[in-house]
Write a protein that binds this DNA or RNA. Structure first.
Length: 263
DNA sequence: ACATTGACCTGAGAGC
DNA sequence: TGCTCTCAGGTCAATG
């Protein structure tokens, strides 16, 4: 689930539910997901604190601690946040949770344990340490910079879009959606794309991510003409009604319309 | 330097 | 019902 639009939706959810709530205690259910600090130290640092604000870079979510430092959350291939009353059972696959003074808790869930929990002094520095490129929605990432990034690459456009070191935030699902909106086949090599194509790709990346955030990353709420609700076996193109093609690109299953996304 | 592949985890769903 | 197999919205190390 957790690509840029999903994580942005989690961020807003965190803001709406958990900001400025006093953390009575923190419980680490899966210490193996905690990196760079021991689970015990993490618990001690979080206890008594409150989250003052949040940020996001690509698929990483950052929660600013009231005093100093940031809690870092990455969700892997599955997961999210869940805010619920303490007397309710702990949500499945909860790997970390914060118990608040108000009788609620915020649970961080990551079913397959491919996520990551950490602390950092600064989100920008953390993103740099992890080798992330600019966030796909970064205002400073204009068409010109996007072109420069693409010009460095030669592989298939889908693999390039998903490379977090180049641009952060796009994964398998949203790469398919962006390419569908741009009318570009996922197997197209970036060095074979003209200026026109790169420009369309850039516009599609921006508008698709914005629109899916507005839909709260929920396929049911997405506008007409989006691929996501049809992205499955026997799915049909929302534009022309043709059966979608399914191929493996850069190691990931990809769906596209053979007519609307010509080779 | 860049692209591709397999391993890491757990669980859901299909097929028998 | 219960078993096996396949697949999954990510990332990193190892390989080509």
């Amino acid at each position: 689930m957790p690509e840029l639009p999903d994580v942005e939706t989690f961020r807003r959810y965190l803001d709406a539910t958990s900001l400025h709530q006093r953390i009575r205690r923190a419980v680490v259910e899966a210490p193996e997901l905690v990196h760079g600090v021991s689970a015990r130290r993490l618990r001690r640092i979080l206890a008594g604190q409150a989250l003052a604000s949040s940020e996001r870079h690509g698929k990483y979510l950052f929660g600013a601690l009231e005093s100093d430092g940031w809690l870092v959350l990455h969700f892997g291939m599955t997961g999210g946040l869940a805010y619920s009353k303490l007397d309710k059972p702990l949500p499945r696959h909860t790997r970390l949770w914060l118990e608040f003074d108000n009788g609620y808790r915020l649970a961080y869930r990551s079913q397959r344990k491919l996520g990551r929990i950490a602390l950092t002094g600064d989100p920008r520095a953390y993103a740099a340490e992890r080798g992330l490129g600019p966030d796909a929605l970064d205002p400073e990432l204009d068409l010109e910079r996007f072109r420069a990034l693409m010009a460095k690459r030669r592989g298939k456009v889908k693999g390039v879009l998903m490379d977090q070191g180049l641009i952060a935030g796009i994964g398998n699902i949203y790469a398919d959606e962006v390419l569908f909106q741009a009318g570009i086949r996922p197997t197209t090599r970036v060095d074979a794309m003209g200026d026109e194509d790169v420009s369309r790709l850039y516009d599609a990346m921006r508008s698709t991510l914005q629109a899916t955030i507005e839909a709260q990353a929920d396929p049911e709420q997405m506008p007409e003409g989006f691929l996501l609700p049809q992205r499955h076996q026997d799915g049909r193109c929302p534009r022309c009604g043709r059966a979608l093609a399914r191929v493996r690109v850069s190691g990931r299953t990809s769906y596209y319309c053979p007519r609307c996304q010509p080779a």
